[in-house]
């Protein structure tokens, strides 16, 4: 069952380890705090990649629900870093225009924009820009909480730029 779609997936250590070492025990799936929102369990995603269903794996909701908390990684009996595996899948999906979650890629994009421009981020600005791109109405919902933060003095919109932005470019 060798897939035609192998080019869609990057050849990284985390992916290779998952393909070669997974014993399909399901520890990762049952450890995941977000498992009941996933369309496929993490173990099934590993299996999809192993058996060549790359297209299908990149289309799952699962990969975008991974918050990289690494509970699976420290429990996996095959010592597979499934958090990094999921990150690699996200990367492959993004690169090849797969996405079944509209929000997450937008968040990444916005985050990267800030870094590429300033070398740093500002969470409040990130949230606002991200919301403007996706669902501006959400901003309204955030007002009461933002007021609280403002009162407590934790809200600031200033963002300092690093001196030479070229230093973080390859």
């Amino acid at each position: 069952m060798v897939s035609q779609n192998n080019h869609l997936i990057e050849d990284s250590y985390a992916i290779r380890a998952a393909i070669e070492k997974c014993i399909q025990c399901g520890t990762c799936s049952a450890s995941c705090p977000l498992n009941n929102y996933m369309d496929y369990t993490p173990r099934q995603v590993v299996l999809m990649v192993r058996e060549g269903f790359i297209h299908e794996a990149l289309k799952t909701k699962t990969i975008w629900l991974c918050s990289t908390c690494y509970l699976c990684a420290v429990r996996c009996p095959a010592k597979i870093n499934i958090g990094e595996f999921m990150t690699a899948l996200k990367r492959s999906a993004l690169k090849n225009g797969y996405s079944n979650n509209q929000l997450y890629p937008k968040l990444m994009e916005t985050y990267a924009e800030y870094i590429n421009k300033y070398g740093r981020i500002s969470e409040p600005r990130l949230m606002i820009k991200f919301s403007l791109k996706t669902s501006p109405f959400k901003l309204l919902k955030m007002i009461p909480f933002s007021m609280k933060l403002l009162r407590e003095g934790t809200l600031s919109f200033s963002l300092e730029k690093i001196q030479n932005i070229e230093e973080i470019k390859i």
Binding site: T68, T87, R91, L107, E109, Y111, A112, Y114, G119
Partner: peptide, 18 residues
């Protein structure tokens, strides 16, 4: 001095090397 963002787990999704 003049530290920059660590990139956390998000920037990797866009650019691993970076």
């Amino acid at each position: 001095e003049d530290w920059n963002c660590c990139g956390s787990n998000l920037y990797r999704v866009v650019d691993e090397k970076g």
